[in-house]
């Protein structure tokens, strides 16, 4: 009869650390939604002061204050979780790079909080608001990375598969993740400045092409690598949903431009577009991590037409 191996205290600690990272990452995703609700409901300046709200820690939660102060509350919670995670990693994580990543996340969440304050005190300057939105996605990426790196699966070694393609899958994943991040910057710029739709559309096309390349390559070359296959499926579904939400956001903005107040449908669709955008980025990032974990670069022999000798790379 199969007997499950008992975890030692160190392994148990690592499992709890991973679970904590997972909670912090989920909270960060909720924070992104809360931030999108603030912008969607035009409530960015509903609380004129910062770091306090109406001179207190708990203002009357009415109208737009609900969204703005709610966002601040979730942000504070995420800040605390990140602080605990960074110190937990410092104390309990053996890999130096992961410990550093924890502190980097803490630094980013502090800067993000200050940027949020500056947007309020300087009446939402576009550059700061866009930076705030972009840094939020970067922070989410850091949290996703920490969750992946602390997972028990990640700690176990896996046999490497050789990638024989000229343009390696790993590089393709990095390029796709980078493009998605750039596309999110363009989306944030469009949302906060109400201009630049053409750039965002071109970005959407580029991201779709790259993501489809990633997905098709997984289906073609690595259908037996479950970690890659799972992520590729999720990426293709999320991308499809994101394209629909993007079209929906544009159309509903167009249809409601004469409205005197933000409508529920507009807020829901645009917020979902931001949230799914974050998930697309996170999925592509985890696919990139997985590609570095399970694939290895093949040693190739390159021939130079002008030189007779072979150069091993």
């Amino acid at each position: 009869m199969f007997k499950q191996r008992e975890l030692n205290s160190s392994e148990r600690g690592a499992t709890w650390l991973h679970r904590f990272a997972l909670v912090a990452t989920f909270s960060t995703f909720v924070l992104i939604i809360a931030g999108a609700l603030v912008t969607g409901n035009e409530a960015g300046l509903a609380v004129p002061d910062w770091p306090l709200s109406y001179g207190s820690l708990m203002p009357p939660m009415v109208g737009g204050i609900r969204y703005e102060h709610g966002h601040r509350m979730v942000a504070t919670f995420v800040g605390f979780l990140t602080m605990i995670l960074a110190f937990w990693l410092w104390r309990g994580e053996s890999r130096r790079s992961v410990r550093m990543l924890g502190f980097l996340a803490l630094g980013v969440v502090i800067i993000q909080g200050i940027l949020g304050g500056i947007t309020v005190l300087f009446f939402l300057p576009t550059i700061i608001s866009v930076s705030h939105a972009c840094l939020a996605q970067a922070f989410f990426c850091l949290m996703v990375s920490l969750t992946l790196l602390t997972s028990p699966d990640w700690r176990q070694g896996v046999p490497k598969i050789e990638d024989r393609n000229n343009f390696s899958f790993r590089r393709l994943c990095v390029l796709t993740t980078g493009s998605i991040y750039l596309q999110l910057i363009l989306g944030a710029a469009l949302r906060h400045s109400k201009s630049g739709i053409v750039f965002h559309l071109v970005g959407a096309f580029a991201v779709t092409v790259l993501a489809m390349l990633v997905v098709t390559r997984v289906f073609k070359y690595y259908p037996n690598v479950s970690s890659l296959l799972r992520a590729a499926w999720v990426l293709s579904i999320l991308l499809l949903a994101q394209l629909f939400l993007g079209t929906g956001s544009y159309l509903i903005r167009l249809a409601t431009r004469q409205d005197v107040q933000p409508g529920l449908a507009m807020v829901t669709i645009t917020t979902a577009h931001v949230a799914v955008g974050a998930l697309v980025l996170a999925t592509s990032l985890s696919l990139t991590f997985q590609s570095y974990r399970v694939l290895s670069q093949a040693n190739r022999v390159r021939r130079f037409s002008t030189a007779p000798q072979k150069v091993a790379l």
Binding site: L45, G64, V260, Q261
Partner: peptide, 10 residues
Amino acid sequence: VKCNVHPWMK
């Protein structure tokens, strides 16, 4: 002039 608490107020 706006009220961000009540976005219809202009």
